[in-house]
Amino acid sequence: MSTGLADPSRLATPPTFQSVSTGRKIKNGLATVLVWLAFAVAVVPLVWVLYTVVARGFPSIVDADWWQKSLSGLLGRQQGGGAYHAIVGTLLQGLVCGVISVPIGIFVGIYLVEYGGRSKLARTTTFMVDILTGVPSIVAALFIYALWVTTLGFSRSGFAVALALVLLMIPVIIRTTEEMLKIVPDELREASYALGIPKWKTIMKIVIPTALSGILTGIMLALARVMGETAPVLVLVGYAAYINFNLFDGPMASLPLLMNVERNNPTQAGYDRLWGAAITLVLIITLFNLLATVVSRWLAPKTK
């Protein structure tokens, strides 16, 4: 209202900056509010969840016993004990899963980018990986149960869990490896070939090191993701309140499994353990993510 139709005498040379019309001010304000609202909608639940987990779980994990003891021989309502058995289980299962799936995932990724091209096998593989990405974790768990326990006759164990996690982890690693290798510029490969370096050596010495930081980040993130999986541990292994280092025999606790068991424990001790296990899991996964960041910074190609 104030400016839009200004003094007619100054029409010839309108000022560079006219003050903004009310309509635009309102639109601007509205848009700002909406953007902030969207931001709040995204952040509030996150902060809330974090706050809840930390506030409820913190008292449990500051106790030294939490990191050193199991829950063996404790009644549901008795305070005390720790989550050592579950931490060990989560780490062991995650580690074994990683040891199996990382080489497979990386090699498949290399094949797809460097060798496969547009061949039939490569296209089939990509298609299968796409499907595998969409497999729900419970289906992976039941598949391993049918194969490992029912058909092959092994007992339920931490290793069976690791196998199910492998099914969930491999497609993620293949995908990240593929993407990372794709962004390695072809000029690097061509320069290498021009010097007479064979293809496998080019991949080993040029392509992989260039993409390594990205691949490692992907691996760490995938590992962090599978360690929080609940469905496989529910189906494939029993819970044990004692410490079990044996992946191939007997029940083995893990943090998601511990949470599931303590969820049915209505006492204060159960509540404390539930949230303690939740914050422990969050902490471990955060640690892996941090590790991923540090490692990828460290290994990133140095550009002067």
Partner: peptide
Amino acid sequence: LGACGSDNNTGAGG
């Protein structure tokens, strides 16, 4: 981590 775990909770009111 593997070196210092314990299943012994007898002190905890058992």
